[in-house]
Amino acid sequence: MGGTEHLTVQREGATLILTLNRPEARNALSLPMLVGLYDGWLEADADDSVRSIVFTGAGGSFCSGMDLKALAGHGMTGEEYRDRLKADPDLHWKAMLRHHRPRKPVIAAVEGYCVAGGTEMLQGTDIRVAGESATFGLFEVRRGLFPIGGSTVRLPRQIPRTHALEMLLTGRPYSAREAAAIGLVGHVVPDGTALAKALEIAERVNACGPLAVEAVKASVYETAEMTESDGLAAELTRGWPVFDTADAKEGARAFAEKRPPVYKRA
């Protein structure tokens, strides 16, 4: 498994856990973090034994966004990774899930600060769990900046436009309960238990047919902006092949035999 000094990679069963690991800076984005994160998404996609990804942060915070000190010209940690960015100028956007969508489900486990770039990355995840004291928000306009990680496009498609515009235009913080009320996160749990809840959800995903899970996720995203008739046609293109797999036959057989299915991605 990969990882860098600011991004740890762990394996728990069929789940790959990617942890932002710069707690002294509330996991503000750094070059080692971005490089490690992108490599983590690629590792999950390439390994068929990985069925889900849990994305979280160390030290009681998820991510506080861009390192503003570095942005002000004071240098960014991990200059030795600069060659990776030169080789792939899009790497940071892929790392932040702006220009890359993993084929495996991504479950966010948020504690503490998930603001600015943290809230932007959150929008690239599929299922979201937050600790009770988590804080969300897009603070960029308060700093005279633009939330260029995708929020002006994605946020109004994920939550009601009035809430999206308030978050984008006021730059105010949102509590976990507020975030749940507007649909930005799906679960609010006691502080310190977001990771455990995310892993519980991941286990439920892992128990399902992996080919079916990946096809369902792909269909949801690729049909999101289609007309209903086009989307329904595209859904059949994704869905029918799943019925012809050995895994589909195993699922039906296991149900009839009253036992857990054994899926083999076949």
Rank of each mutant, 00 (worst) to 15 (best):
A25F: 09
F62C: 05
M96A: 10
L165V: 11
M96F: 07
A28Q: 13
V216D: 00
D88A: 12
A194Y: 03
A218P: 02
S229H: 12
L236T: 09
A254C: 09
A95W: 01
G144N: 12
D244S: 14
L145M: 15
M96I: 10
E257H: 13
P190A: 12
G239D: 08
L34S: 11
G150F: 07
T19W: 00
H74W: 01
A234Y: 03
T4L: 00
A252G: 11
R103V: 15
M226D: 11
F62K: 00
P190S: 07
A164D: 02
M66K: 00
L155S: 04
E250S: 06
K86P: 04
K264F: 05
F139N: 00
R172C: 02
W93H: 08
R172I: 01
A212C: 13
E257A: 13
A218S: 07
G65F: 00
L169R: 13
P105K: 01
T135M: 15
G117N: 13
I127Q: 01
N21C: 06
G59H: 04
M33G: 01
L18T: 11
G171D: 10
A246K: 13
K217Y: 05
L34C: 10
T245F: 08
G150C: 05
H99L: 12
K94S: 04
R98V: 13
A196I: 09
F146C: 08
P160D: 04
K94L: 04
A256K: 11
L31G: 04
